[in-house]
Structures are given as C-alpha cells and as structure tokens.
C-alpha cells in the first residue's frame, strides 16, 4: 500500500474532485485520503490546499484536532490495549509492556515493517473481559502476557 509521491498527489486529486464546488468537503476528503493512503502525508495536504483553495494551516489545524487523523504512517494492524480502571486493576500494564517488548515500539508507535501500531485506549467497554485488547476489529479478553504473542502472530 506504499505509494510514490506522485501517486499520492494523483489519488488525492481524484478524491478532491467531487468536493471542489461547495463547502464542507474537508473532513470527508481527509477521511478518504487516510483510508486510501493509510495516513495523511504532507503531499496530500498540500494538494488538498491547492485544489480546494483552503489554507494549509487550516487543513493542518483540522487534521491535528481530530484523533481520527494521523500525519505519520500507521501499521497494517492497530493494536488497542485498554487501560481503563477495570483492566488496570487486572494487569493491563503488563499486557502493554509485553506488547511493547514484542513489537519494539513505544505507545502510539509503529513497527518498522509497518505491521503494527500500538495505541493504548482509555476504555474499550468490555470491562467484564478485563484485561482486554483489540487488534483491528477483533477483541481479545482475559489476557495474560504469555497469550499476547500467539494473538499477534496471527496478523500478518
């Protein structure tokens, strides 16, 4: 899914096209670019700015305001480890630590091979299964540190 700079510009231009007339297109454009490219590269933001005549700083402001947007590449799989109260009590810190060690990443970091991004979250709403983590849309509960490796190995 790695695109060249020129491909990124071209794809961004395609995405912008239907929104060029009228207002209110910025967030849907950013979402679509992120969906296509995986994150919001600088070339995309510059292209959007020029095509839509929206100042670069305004786009940057929107992109940094919403947690859903990312300005750096993200992994193919997002690992969300819960550190809500219930999970904390049942040892989520150890889970996070083992993920960090296994992937060699810090919180909110991405592995060099772009396989995983680790994102601790406040609560996943599955306190009955604590400690919990999600990989993409799959939930894994009642975790212990030694279970983590087996789970992560199933994601390529």
């Amino acid at each position: 899914m790695a695109f060249s700079v020129e491909e990124v510009r071209e794809k961004t231009r395609e995405i912008v096209q239907p929104w060029k007339t009228g207002k209110g297109g910025l967030i849907p454009i950013l979402q679509k670019v992120q969906e296509t490219v995986g994150y919001l590269p600088e070339e995309s933001l510059v292209t959007i700015s020029r095509e839509m005549k929206i100042p670069l700083s305004e786009i940057y402001g929107v992109a940094t305001f919403y947690a859903q947007f990312h300005l750096t590449p993200r992994g193919r799989h997002i690992v969300r480890v819960c550190r809500g109260t219930a999970c904390h009590v049942r040892g989520s810190l150890k889970i996070i630590d083992s993920v960090k060690k296994m992937l060699h990443v810090e919180e909110n970091g991405t592995t060099e091979d772009l396989r995983f991004t680790l994102e601790p979250v406040a609560c996943l709403g599955a306190c009955g299964l604590a400690p919990v983590m999600m990989v993409d849309s799959q939930t894994f509960g009642r975790l212990t540190p030694d279970k983590v490796k087996g789970i992560l190995d199933t994601f390529e």
């Binding site: 100042p55 700083s57 940057y60 402001g61 940094t64 305001f65």
Partner: peptide
Amino acid sequence: HTLDLEKRGWGTTVTADL
C-alpha cells in the same frame, strides 16, 4: 492565513502552515 490552531484541549497552540 499562515497561522492556525494545532491540536486541541490543553495542548492547543497557534502554529504556522504545516
């Protein structure tokens, strides 16, 4: 329109361009 806000909440700052 060089200046705009970056981030949100406590961390919000005025920033330039990208």
